[in-house]
Design a protein around this nucleic acid. Structure first.
Length: 575
RNA sequence: CGGGGUGUAGCGCAGUUUGGUAGCGCACCACGUUCGGGACGUGGGGGUCGGAGGUUCAAAUCCUCUCACCCCGACCA
């Protein structure tokens, strides 16, 4: 491609509404332009990058044995009513009507469509297993789209769905996909982790997220420094630190009984600990949650945080949220800030960290009062479990040796074992070798294509702009013709351009009638991995300059240039 | 949806407090000089100041309503 013909309007300054680097740089490099909140037009450079990511994904999916299909974006409501998600999915599902007033939605994900397809065509165990994937534009009416392609409402996603006869077979495919995903993100040149994750509202048995490590990531993950356990903090289990699990039964009886102290206006952990001159870890944080199974009080040591998802699981509820003031005072008799486990009649769950606490401080279930000398086990009894948010330094639950390190990451892929949730509701059944009808076991596997591109920028950039990993760069090589007036120099640039194109190397020829500085700045901003600079200066030595993005400049003879580029790009010799 | 904020040229902003000819930098067009890290000079084009209503002799500026966008929370590839 010739830059003089390329539609890539670069900007010196980033638009004020761009917050994260990837968004700013994509706008500045002329890759994307916004059409509406969370909805973007991809310009030629943006298309090139997304296509490269797509091709890597497509190749690896095919190698892993999946087959490509294309499902519609517009989906009739019947399918969603059949699975029950028409009512469950909420406002994120963009609903629309056709001219006859029939209900449709824009597909945010395609379990319904694919399961319906397979249910209609596959009857026998002989036709299973099967894995179908597509690369397609999805629409989710996100509450708050932001960060450019990182969290758009309309976005390109690769989604795959597998169907199996047995659990074992499904698990095998799950691992197959996990391996394929690792190859995909490796080929994209990304530094990533596969972490255990919560299944969210897609449902299913267990799942892994693929996280690109970046400080700007929206997700927090922990990984063990000794073994390979890694998990989203939403999900991460915590190993029991020595002593924490044990209860403090015997000694407790000899300790003083709870004593009420007046703490007017002191509600938060910080206020109470400062007022009573005790450390936050002496307090028991008591939070009332409302769930579909009724209200429940959750306890954790004062210096720790409660993980909502763990509360939900501990209460065996399908949702859990902090209770409103009405519910709090109804079950405790006090406003929030003064509630505690002592004398509570409702359901009580507590983090392991609470069990071994001694002489603790809690709310007295009376406005303006707290209790001191509270002894778990003696003064209240609770169901002990893991409720807290995992953090740096917590013990690994798997190897019992290592402790956690905390990272931030961008979720670029997610794989789920779905089980029979959709095959049962959508009637995807088959006959096994005994002629018995059974629901198919399913798995599903997603990759955000645009998000992967954005994550690559978050991880690979500097002050000058983007530093694309070679496999997903919009062009792998660029040629800066510095002295546009010099005929010989231009001719050399042209011959190198054709030489590279002949080898199938995507090359951008900067033939614009601009000063050298302008070209260098733009090419750095766009982030082409390798630059060839052709000028009269180096022509005396029959050479050109080659510079890898962010690296040093060196001279290479004319005749060796194409071979040198091939070496740098590590392209295997072709037949 | 709750809380906070912003809408003035393609982009970045000033002007709004205290109503009175709509401005600056970059980008764009023409000519000239320049030509290896976003050049300089001269001249030029581009705006119903997000929209609607109101107050006023006069509104970017004051009042009312509305729309869009951005940031912080719950959701997610």
């Amino acid at each position: 491609m010739r830059f003089s013909k390329l539609f890539a309007p670069t900007l010196r300054e980033s638009p004020a509404d761009a917050e994260v680097v990837s968004h700013k740089l994509m706008l500045r490099a002329g890759m994307i332009r916004k059409v509406a909140a969370g909805i973007y037009t991809l310009l030629p450079l943006g298309v090139n990058v997304l296509k490269s990511v797509e091709n890597i994904v497509r190749e690896e999916m095919m190698l892993a044995g999946a087959q490509e299909v294309t499902m519609p974006m517009v989906v009739p409501s019947e399918l969603w009513k059949e699975s029950g998600r028409w009512d469950e999915y909420g406002k994120e599902l963009l609903r629309l009507n056709d001219r006859h007033g029939r209900d449709f939605c824009l597909g945010p994900t395609h379990e319904e469509v694919v399961t319906n397809l397979v249910a209609g065509e596959v009857r026998s165990y002989k036709n299973l297993p099967m894995n179908l994937f597509q690369i397609q534009t999805k629409f989710r009416d996100e509450i708050r789209p932001r960060f450019g392609l990182m969290r758009g409402r309309e976005f390109v996603m690769k989604d795959a769905y597998s169907f199996h006869v047995t659990e074992e077979c499904a698990e095998k495919e799950y691992l197959n996909m996990k391996a394929a995903y690792s190859r995909i993100f490796e080929r994209c040149g990304l530094d990533f982790r596969a972490v255990e994750a919560d299944t969210g509202n897609i449902g299913g048995n267990f799942s892994h997220e693929f996280m690109v490590l970046a400080d700007t990531g929206e997700d927090a993950i922990v990984s063990c420094e000794k073994c390979d356990y890694a998990a989203n903090v939403e999900r991460a289990e915590i190993g029991l630190p020595a002593g924490e699990g044990a209860s403090s039964s015997e000694a407790a009886s000899s300790l003083p009984l709870p004593e009420k102290v007046s703490t007017p206006g002191k509600k938060s952990i910080d206020e109470v600990s400062e007022f009573l001159k005790v450390k936050p870890e002496t307090l028991i944080k008591s939070l009332v949650y409302n769930t579909d199974k009724g209200p429940v009080m959750a306890l954790v040591r004062g210096d720790l945080e409660i993980n909502n998802i763990k509360v939900k699981r501990a209460a065996s509820a399908s949702w859990a949220e902090l209770a409103s003031e009405d519910i709090v005072s109804e079950i405790t008799g006090a406003p929030s800030g003064y509630v505690g486990p002592v004398g509570l009649k409702g359901k009580l769950i507590a983090d392991f960290s609470v069990r071994s606490m001694r002489g603790a401080v809690t709310g007295a279930n009376e406005e303006g009062a707290h209790l001191r000398n509270v002894e778990p086990g003696r003064d209240f009894s609770a169901e002990y479990t893991d409720l807290r948010v995992a953090g740096s330094g917590d013990k690994c639950p798997r190897c019992d040796e290592g402790s956690f390190k905390l990272f931030r990451g961008i979720e670029v892929g997610h794989i789920f074992m779905l089980g029979t949730k959709y095959s049962e509701s959508m009637g995807a059944k088959f006959l096994d070798e005994n002629g018995k009808e059974k629901p198919m076991i399913m798995g599903c596997y997603g990759i955000g294509i645009g998000r992967t591109a954005a994550a690559a920028i978050e991880q690979n950039h500097d002050e000058a702009g983007i530093r694309w990993p070679v496999p997903i760069a919009p062009y792998q090589v660029c040629i800066a013709a510095v002295t546009m007036k010099d005929h010989d120099s231009l001719e050399l640039a042209e011959s190198l351009y054709f030489g590279l194109m002949d080898k199938g190397i995507p090359t951008l020829m900067d033939d614009r009638n601009e000063r050298a500085g302008v070209k260098f700045k733009d090419l750095d901003l766009i982030g082409i991995p390798v630059r060839i600079t052709v000028s009269t200066n180096t022509m005396k030595e029959e050479s050109v300059e080659i510079k890898e993005r962010g690296g040093e400049t060196r001279l290479v003879g004319y005749k060796d240039t194409v071979a040198e580029i091939i070496r740098i790009l590590k392209i295997p010799p072709s037949g």
